[in-house]
Design a protein around this nucleic acid. Sequence first.
DNA 1: CTGAAAGCGCTTACAG
DNA 2: CTGAAAGCGCTTACAG
Lengths: 336, 336
Amino acid sequence: MARVSIKSIAEVLGVSTATVSLVLNGKEKEGRVSKDVAEKIRLKAKEMHYEPNNLARGLRMGCSQTIGLIVADISNLFFANLAFHIQEHAEKYGYSVIITNTNESDLKLEKMVNVLKSRQVDGFIIVPTEHGMPYVETLVKRNIPTVLVDRNFAEIKAGAVVVDNYHASAKAVKSLIRQGCRNIGLIIYKSRLQHMRERKRGYIDAITEHGFYNPDFVKEINYSTISNDIPIAIESLLLKENRIDGIFFATNTLSMLGIKQLMNMNRRIPEDLKVVCFDKSDAFDFMDIPIPYIFQPLPEMGRIAVELLVEQIKEPSGERKCVELQASLVNSPVNN
Amino acid sequence: MARVSIKSIAEVLGVSTATVSLVLNGKEKEGRVSKDVAEKIRLKAKEMHYEPNNLARGLRMGCSQTIGLIVADISNLFFANLAFHIQEHAEKYGYSVIITNTNESDLKLEKMVNVLKSRQVDGFIIVPTEHGMPYVETLVKRNIPTVLVDRNFAEIKAGAVVVDNYHASAKAVKSLIRQGCRNIGLIIYKSRLQHMRERKRGYIDAITEHGFYNPDFVKEINYSTISNDIPIAIESLLLKENRIDGIFFATNTLSMLGIKQLMNMNRRIPEDLKVVCFDKSDAFDFMDIPIPYIFQPLPEMGRIAVELLVEQIKEPSGERKCVELQASLVNSPVNN
DNA sequence: CTGAAAGCGCTTACAG
DNA sequence: CTGAAAGCGCTTACAG
């Protein structure tokens, strides 16, 4: 069963491929194709089960109607949700999404950028890795539509949609202070990425403002050795610095493992110490009391990422917008 | 900055595009291209930052090195994990993965099959919807490589990789019986899909074997009204049939919501009643006691799905294998 | 060892 | 209103 192409339809009907193409793309007005020819073509196309070949179309048009999405790890709930919303919106614009993982490796980011480029994606939505700036920069310099999400590189002016991590973090810490915490630990990744730096800065500034800052209370975890590092960090916070009465976890994975460790050590939340987490985890539903967390507007982030990218695709040399969204504090016993 | 193609390299070097293509694809042996010409071409390609155009290649070769993955919902942890492993393996074979969601809608399944077909994917990995069989059947009949995963349609012989849901379910129920449960509820989706039918059948057979079967203990939930149905189902199980001493949850979403409801009603696990869940949820880590659950070998499922698909792509008219994996019971206080 | 040419399926000026 | 033709970038017989 040979593939049915525009040519086969044209031959059967004794018309030119140009006419068939025009009709099948709804451009019969422009080509001013007669109504009956158009009707005949549409019927025959259906009858022959014509299916357009987007590869050929893409080659000819110089665009693929495909978006390349690069995230750290699609099996992480945060990125999975983000990917979901990006996809739903991309679909509305007629784009398909190719999703790839970096697992936070700069090498894989480079590789994935190349893979997606060779697939002629019309644009990139990227959650960059720690030292991934050069690869993103190359894209931007070549005017390839690119939107960063979750983490921005302010130095290069790619498009971006991020959360105001600084104020979100400060908000979290202040809520702990307002609950009476004085010695507040921070569990965060050791990372040069902007969102981590901002979360740390938000924590430090908010705490310093109240005169409670102590560098020993900041524990920086290595992404690659996380399950090992977390218990050590928590133990050190609680045992050595046993005045700790609150902990701010800077990501959902960190909170998951951290809270687990707190439970292992029989610390009760919020009696023994209070916590706030960045991002929700399903697990919070199972806790006896509601766990306060910073809520990032994921559906919005996905939508805006797609919208910014589509704008760039339309006008590759136009200015690239950077959108910052506010995150909210949920489940906190104190008002904001 | 014009795109650099094989042609531009050929022109600069004064050789033919055929030679360039041969060299860049490592087929210089076949074409018996001289070493120095080959070397010159490789150097110039690097120098000009040549990047192959996979669209053109795909059009010419009749394949795209792309796999279409259709899942119910990429933001569900089960599918997100599955997608992760599928991707990692696809990459090894040089395939990219386009992921799309159906949200359990048959209409969207049909649409996504068409979208992916027009993108000339070389094969499909599909988590089918309840009434999605016709769309899958069309693919199979046309000899388009297709592997079903998680849920099989036994009637059509697509390739498939599934878990032995029947025995997994029976195993779960028997573990409850061995712990002394006599009145065991089942919370399951109302669905004609094979995996659900099998899980229900496994439950019924295992329970009947011990003479404890009571149809009132089976609560079938509608996917679309789940957050409403679950509390009602649990309440009805516990209040009307208050001899209930165990519950088997047939999916992770059902267990999440179900256990939450049990906690709302102040039922303690396992003192007041015992539970077993299908699939792990992150939340289990936060429970005071370990929650027993059926573990599906996701990494294996992903790997095998890709392997089966690659086999089919190599030999589209060959026999399509169907692999059934065993799931294990984790965290149960009784041995298996 | 290398080149000229055809063709994958499509769209788009151009000509009539 | 419609057709002939070029060309997107690639690969692959074919010829020499």
